[in-house]
Design a protein around this nucleic acid. Structure first.
Length: 156
DNA sequence: GCCAACGTTGGC
DNA sequence: GCCAACGTTGGC
């Protein structure tokens, strides 16, 4: 990783559960409840100052709606120890927590959603994995060159 | 270590 | 409601 460039990510959430409107109201949020090792590992490789595209999934149409900034990393996900949480993990252990997460800050909402259909017209699966059919990973890296093109499309 | 069964995500 | 894409689990 060269110099001080920030990395870019794409993070999915269902707007009915937690959408850009919720984040704008709260200003910051803990991105907890991630129970997929690959997604967790992507969060572990995030750095403060990285930016994440907020993607609304499982909605019509799905697409990128806003931008967030990573403001804290390496946070133990408290929901894994909460028996009343749907994210409770009975197999994790307070001495060696299995799940952690990051805190994100609202930056902005884009004037228009960049829909999945539009993304498919502009990107290959190598450039932006979310365009692959059946992709279930809720956190994905976005290559720098792809981020540049995303910002350009979102500014139009 | 293989692999079938199962579960989840999420678009269609 | 269906199903594609995978990750996870467990029997062997």
């Amino acid at each position: 990783m060269a110099g001080k460039g920030v990395a870019y990510w794409l993070m999915k959430s269902e707007p009915d559960v937690y959408g850009i409107d919720h984040l704008r109201q709260e200003t910051t949020t803990l991105w907890d409840g991630i129970r997929n090792y690959q997604a967790r590992n992507f969060m572990r490789s995030m750095a403060i100052g990285d930016q994440a595209f907020f993607y609304h999934s499982n909605t019509k149409p799905p697409g990128i709606v806003g931008l967030m900034e990573v403001i804290e990393t390496g946070i133990t996900d408290p929901s894994q120890f909460d028996p009343s949480s749907k994210y409770h993990d009975p197999d994790t252990n307070p001495d060696t927590p299995r799940w952690d997460c990051v805190r994100l800050r609202y930056l902005r909402e884009f004037p228009r959603m960049l829909t999945l259909d539009q993304l498919k017209e502009s990107f290959t699966v190598d450039e932006l994995a979310v365009v692959r059919r059946g992709n279930r990973l809720s956190i994905l890296p976005v290559p720098d060159a792809t981020a540049v093109r995303l910002f350009s499309l979102l500014a139009d």
